[in-house]
Amino acid sequence: MTQPAPVVETHDLTFSYGTTQVLNGLSFSVSEGEIFGVLGANGSGKTTLMRLLVGLLRNDGGAINILGESPSPKQASRVGYMPQVNALYLELSVRENVDFFARMYGMSDRRPRAQSVQEAIDLVDLGPRSSDPILKLSGGMRQRVSLAIALVHRPGLLILDEPTVGLDPDLRAVFWERFRRMAESGATIMISSHTMDDAAHCDRLAFLRDGRVIALDTPSALRAATGQPDATLDDAFMHFLRESSD
């Protein structure tokens, strides 16, 4: 039996901002229904990678394959992107923000769009606040609105750049419960993070350092690779950092 084509695949990906090399030959692939975590310290190239995947940047070298093709604007209806910065219209309400982006994703029919907008708002538990302007919401609530925007058009692939940064532990757990539910219903999720709390929830992880993948496997396999029976993912990350320095 042939393996299904990966939803996301990069091969020997390189990118630089001027003379600063940010990605140095990055290769990995993500399968359908998988939650794939990209873990690394600040400046390791996570956000650059995410921006390349959604076509906001163009790679200098190597190849990117998203849903079977190179990143292009026409894929937008199948990809949901949550940027690191919330990027919301502060004067508009939660519903107006989500509805506006739904229209940008090509949902022009009013009735089905209204239903999708309501579902996305309910999914992030903001129903009671849906008429409030973003200005009146807390940081965590704004992040939930941002997530609702990424979900509103029911994309098959979600690319989420540090979606849990700044969230309190309760809300983080809620987010992860949502992500797991979406993956179980067939969505593929790529998440960048620099916390090992997030890493533990992923099906597979790529540890990044200086724009290179220094380790790629399931959380349990990465822990096992340290050789210590009670190793945490923090230990595993440090183990691979040391190994990559040698």
Partner: peptide
């Protein structure tokens, strides 16, 4: 500056 233009550019709008 708020990043909304960039977010718009990840949608279908030209």
């Amino acid at each position: 500056a708020q990043g909304t233009l960039e977010r718009l550019q990840t949608t279908l709008v030209g």
